[in-house]
Amino acid sequence: MAHRVTGVLIFFFLFVHVLDTALVRVSPQAYDTVVSTYKNPVVNLLEYGLVAAILFHALNGLRVVAVDFWAKGPKYQRQMLWTVVGIWVVLMAGAFYPVLQHSIRLLFGS
């Protein structure tokens, strides 16, 4: 279920991304205005969520491929799921400061 949810979330991000990027062809000033509204801590937190969704979707996708194409995949799917979750947690911990540094500096000063 999480794989499908992250896939839908990534799709919606890509849809919005294409729309706001296409705005540059209509009016560069409008594009700059829209992009400037993204520079706040709430959107920065959503960016961290996007990183989380992409990483989980990619790692879990590899697990799904292994389950489908490896003869022993179904037998080890639970262990592979926990491996994916463990790797995802480590990568998300590593992405915490690089992704959220703008908001951390805004909230706590630098």
Rank of each mutant, 00 (worst) to 15 (best):
A2M: 10
R4Y: 03
R4W: 08
V5N: 10
V5I: 12
G7T: 07
V8T: 09
F11C: 14
F12N: 08
F12L: 15
F12V: 15
F13H: 12
F13Q: 07
F13V: 10
L14Q: 12
L14F: 14
F15H: 12
L19W: 00
L19S: 01
D20K: 07
D20T: 09
D20I: 10
L23H: 08
L23V: 13
V24N: 12
V24S: 11
V24L: 14
V26L: 13
V26F: 11
S27D: 12
A30L: 14
Y31I: 02
D32G: 06
T33I: 15
Y38K: 15
Y38W: 14
K39G: 06
N40D: 08
P41N: 05
P41Y: 07
P41G: 05
P41C: 01
V42K: 02
N44F: 02
L46I: 13
Y48P: 00
A53N: 03
I54Q: 04
I54Y: 03
L55M: 15
L55I: 15
L55H: 08
F56W: 06
F56A: 03
H57P: 03
H57Y: 12
L59R: 01
N60K: 10
L62C: 03
R63W: 03
V64K: 01
V65G: 11
A66K: 05
A66N: 10
D68L: 15
W70Q: 02
A71N: 11
K72Q: 12
G73V: 02
Y76L: 05
Q77Y: 10
R78H: 00
R78I: 01
Q79Y: 02
L81A: 02
W82G: 03
T83K: 09
V85C: 03
I87W: 07
W88F: 08
M92G: 05
A95M: 10
F96I: 09
P98C: 10
S103N: 05
R105K: 15
L106P: 03
L106S: 08
L107C: 11
S110C: 12
